[in-house]
Design a protein around this nucleic acid. Structure first.
Lengths: 339, 339
DNA sequence: AAGTGAAATGTTACCGGTAACATGAATGCT
DNA sequence: AGCATTCATGTTACCGGTAACATTTCACTT
């Protein structure tokens, strides 16, 4: 093996057809379950498929037909992101169920990396694309437009999408949380994020939060954005930083739950009482947030629903069924014990 | 768009060649950077590639050549698993760097699901496969053998692999932890796992742990395996269950860090002192485990190294370079404050 | 029994690249 | 200059399916 010299299709459709005593075309029909053959013929063909261990060649099939492939390109920031895992899972399951294959790419929040990947994936004639994020290079846009390929931008709600958009209203999440925290009597607000040098979507939550505060004649007293990936560490150290800079703060909004939890641990390590000394709120509704000794105040989002809706909508569009261009996936503020 | 009727390759190599005033073959050579053309020719061709926005068609290329595709199939239990995320990421990055595309599948720990996926992926003429887990159906084995396709089984070390194996020695991890916990004076041991109805690899750690205890004339007093996916919840409730059943236990070994952390929170909720009342140890070296108020005693494994080594080795094998059949990725017991 | 339409099956051409071989031009050598 | 050699380029056939069209078979009808 190794050399890939002897790889030529072990068993071809022609061989199956010959063994079954029918034409290639008839065998092809049976395998695709398109109509126009008797039960007897099907049996003959399927017997040979079994006997010879025939595995269809989708490369050849895609190539030979007018269709695009059944490949769906899926681009996300990181495969290891805590929030995106469930999205990936539900997308993958939904697509597999509908007979599509997922080809993944991680863009690491860089539009340039995304562009490289897009060129790559397009060379596989994908039936559609699922892109996370809304920032794309001009070339990326041009390539997609030129192909007129169905695309769903996911994660963030995008009111003027490339094609379609399925996501959360991040701005509103932040806005709602601001109002909630204000209602609990907090006064001096800080925001802790980690953006790994990318103009991430989380920024929208920060903006919404800020806007919510300003509507109440308040405002963000301090902002700490670490140049790192969001995570427990980043939350821990971000909290340390922001509190050292501004000891007046009595309420912190975090980019996501992992950071908020990191923040909680920092507070615990400093014997700061939550929420009396500092209020803490996150975003995401991570499983973990509800096992903590104190239930974290956060916004619960259904990443699973997002994935399934996105996958289903994209396929509907590919199949030419009517679809909505913009779909908002619901979120819910979950009051915990930390605000 | 939508209908996929007008999708036929927007710009073909033939068009590029014609515009550049060369033959298809010459254009093909330029694009693949195979030798046999002047710089002048390259420039002419590349200019047209730019001007026309040509994107290669890898489906056609794969089909027309003797090569397999540059697709690598990657099968894992769940895409949302906390431990597998980093593996995925590093595999994906390494493969992309080498010019390969990742096609993913989640087998949910079911060999039958894996088989379905294998049939699917094989129809794309992949250059190789990365399979997590070591349990496969006979059909799966037969299909792979018949194709003589390079395969790396990852995650678990497998001394008689289908083709090659890159993984951790899970048994030894458990064994080592048993000795360590014994050395700290603990006496009554319990194991808490969650296997979601699958004969998971984690079982090996349990066996190693158990063997380590038995060598010291001790043994597992209680075992609690939840029929669930491992996670914080499972750890929390698993701990509740096992301690209710056996209040003598003074040391718990968990399937992984998420569960151990869930267990820690349970202890905290019951005002049990760790490690005085109950010792807690996990496996995995999750980021979070080191931000906790108490550093978790665990086995640190480099999932990133595993992914990279697996990807690189598989590609080496695909290219016909010499490779080792079995590669052990190192693990390290990290004493924390919970044992 | 002949005629008819529908269903089953077969034939042909083609998708867009690339391998293998053929040709032509440039270079080096005696 | 004449010939061999190398390098750049072109020509042809083919990969394994499927669309489109052609043909055959069959069940009915009158």
């Amino acid at each position: 093996m190794v050399q890939g010299k002897d790889k030529r299709q072990a068993v071809s459709l022609a061989q199956v057809a010959k063994a079954a005593g029918v034409s290639k075309m008839t065998a092809s029909r049976v395998l695709r379950n398109s109509d126009g053959f008797t039960d007897q013929t099907r049996t003959k063909v399927m017997e040979q498929v079994e006997a010879l261990g025939y595995v269809p060649n989708r490369i050849a099939a895609t190539f030979g037909s007018e269709q695009t492939s059944t490949i769906i390109g899926l681009s996300i920031p990181y495969l290891s992101s805590g929030m995106f895992g469930p999205v990936l899972d539900s997308i993958n399951v939904a697509l597999a169920k509908l007979g599509y294959q997922t080809m993944i790419g991680a863009h690491e929040n860089s539009p340039a990396t995304e562009e490289t990947w897009i060129k790559n994936i397009l060379s596989w004639q994908p039936a559609g694309l699922l892109l996370s994020g809304h920032v794309h290079t001009q070339t990326t846009r041009d390539l997609i437009k030129a192909r007129a390929i169905p695309v769903a931008e996911i994660w963030n709600l995008n009111t003027s999408p490339l094609d379609m958009s399925v996501g959360f209203n991040h701005f509103d999440c932040g806005h709602e949380m601001a109002l909630y925290m204000l209602s609990k009597g907090h006064k001096n607000f800080g925001y802790v994020g980690a953006d790994a040098s990318a103009p991430g979507i989380a920024k929208l939550r920060q903006s919404g939060f800020s806007a919510g505060l300003e509507a109440a004649e308040n405002g963000l007293a301090s902002v700490e954005i670490l140049n790192d990936r969001p995570g427990f560490y980043a939350g821990f150290y971000g909290t340390e930083n922001i509190l050292n800079r501004n000891s007046e703060l009595d309420a912190l909004y975090y980019q996501d739950d992992t950071m908020a939890i990191g923040g909680l641990f920092y507070c615990q390590s400093q014997s700061l009482k939550v929420p009396e000394d500092v209020a803490v709120a996150g975003w995401g509704g991570m499983e973990m947030a509800s096992v903590l000794p104190q239930r974290l105040t956060t916004t619960i989002v259904s990443t699973q629903a997002l994935g399934k809706i996105a996958a289903d909508s994209l396929i509907a569009r590919i199949r030419g069924e009517p679809t909505r261009e913009v779909i908002i996936t619901p979120t819910r503020l979950a009051p915990g014990e930390t605000v």
